[in-house]
Write a protein that binds this DNA or RNA. Sequence first.
DNA 1: AGCAGGATCCGCT
DNA 2: GCGGATCCTGCTT
Length: 212
Amino acid sequence: MRLNRDFYSANALKLAPRLIGKKLVRIIGGKKLTARIVETEAYYGPEDKACHAYRNRRTKRTEVMYYPGGYSYVYLIYGMYCCLNIVCGPPESPQAVLIRAVEPLNNIDVFMKNRKGNAAKLQMANLTNGPGKLCQAMNIDHKLNGLDLIKNTDLYILNGNSPPKLVSAPRVNINYAQEYCNKLWRWYDPESIFVSVKKKNKCTQNYKPSIT
DNA sequence: AGCAGGATCCGCT
DNA sequence: GCGGATCCTGCTT
């Protein structure tokens, strides 16, 4: 079952932990690549200094963040890598969840072929343990920006089980975000070897999802 | 029209 | 641990 609009309409702080364990699906070249989401980060709209839509910044690039929950937001970073985000919350509320790491579940040979360089071959985890790496491995680029994941046939997310444990930690590489760089807005499955940054610091803690 | 900087990764030390 | 690759975005002029 695909996730529905209701699921994606939660705010980023709620959706990010809930996406752990869900299955990202990418259809490419007649093959279906499936991967379990193991690490996410929330970008919490106009108040969040690390968010592209901080202070309601609205440009050609950030426009999709104002779409209803459930659309894709893919952008280029450092001139060479793409990052996949899931737009969330109600329409006109520019929030998103960055998919930072996944675990390939099938067609591993295709993931491997899509990754460039030798590092990917050295160890399995290197295939998809980072936002740029997973986009490369699953052939996700700017052409997949602004898609409705509820209807689209090339990229979507299926339901899946939450892991037994979940950890929250500070987000990665947002040092410019001042007081927001210490928010525990990154979540990951501590049992997965595909998590990009597992180093614990004083902020890292176990996360208990709330019912509401 | 020009410029500074970035939600990253890789290879080398 | 470090620096280079590489180019789009957004802001300034």
